[in-house]
Nucleic acid binder design. Structure first.
Ligand code: SF4
Ligand code: SF4
Lengths: 127, 127
DNA sequence: GTTATTATAGATTCACAATATCTTTAATTA
DNA sequence: TAATTAAAGATATTGTGAATCTATAATAAC
């Protein structure tokens, strides 16, 4: 019952990008990694998922690095979590006895509250 | 970002107790375990935590077993989760840069929504 | 084109906690 | 006393997130 470190890294890297006007400028993973004091190769792996999801862009070579996409303000925290960890369900049903299960209903409602909250917040709220 | 199997087992065991009028009758762990098709010794370990937290009672010896406490209806889902998994925070801060951190604020608010929902539901809602 | 720089991908390892089992001990009943 | 049951402790297993290492591909500068 906790978020992954990868998500933690992703959020912090994004915060760094936001704080460094990185919608106009590229930031190499080395800079991000040393700023966060985490492994560069691992962080790279994490950020690649954000690239795949089109939340940031990347370019190789000199002067390359990561950069926020246009309209990054609209990306929600939920988007990030899903991009990194996938759509895991908080409570996974051992059997699924079908409709009308009270346990399922309870847990899903709780989870929905969490997800709704994550969806209602965007990267703009980090500024 | 998911609940533990132990919590899953606990909820289902409780549901079984509720459905079998187990506020007046004791149910040995063997019966619970075979009903849920899980390991009896492991389930016993899990249920012991509920005993420690005074949500169920246990008695050894012949005709012994587990039994719901009086006023079990008031026990919340949150109570169960905490009794089993402890008070883990969904988002644990890598550094804690102090007040005013937007990331922390966002994640904690989301988490609070989840916890509030879990607190607002009780075992009575399983009947 | 060559070289330097950077991201990406794949394979592999590491570490740790959840899960599970086994065995012993304590408690309770008949 | 004998039988039954929970609790506790030690240990084993497993799963998986986390991390490293080593290539390979892309890009820019010269
Ligand atoms: S009782 Fe409900 S939550 Fe449990 S396995 Fe059946 S359907 Fe799923
Ligand atoms: S930036 Fe915020 S969430 Fe991240 S380590 Fe600092 S205080 Fe914690």
């Amino acid at each position: 019952m906790k978020f992954s470190k990868a998500t933690d890294y992703a959020l912090h890297a994004l915060l760094y990008l936001i704080m460094h006007n990185a919608d106009t400028q590229r930031v190499p993973v080395q800079e991000l990694a040393s700023s966060l004091d985490v492994s560069a190769t691992y962080l790279s792996k994490v950020l690649t998922r954000l690239v795949k999801a089109n939340y940031i862009t990347a370019s190789s070579g000199a002067k390359g690095g990561y950069q926020l996409r246009k309209n990054w303000e609209a990306i929600t925290i939920y988007d990030i979590v899903v991009a990194i960890d996938g759509e895991q369900t908080l409570f996974e049903d051992s059997f699924d006895h079908g409709e009308g299960c009270k346990i399922q209903a309870l847990m899903q409602e709780a989870e929905n509250n969490l997800l709704h909250s994550l969806k209602s917040k965007s990267l703009k709220d980090l500024t």
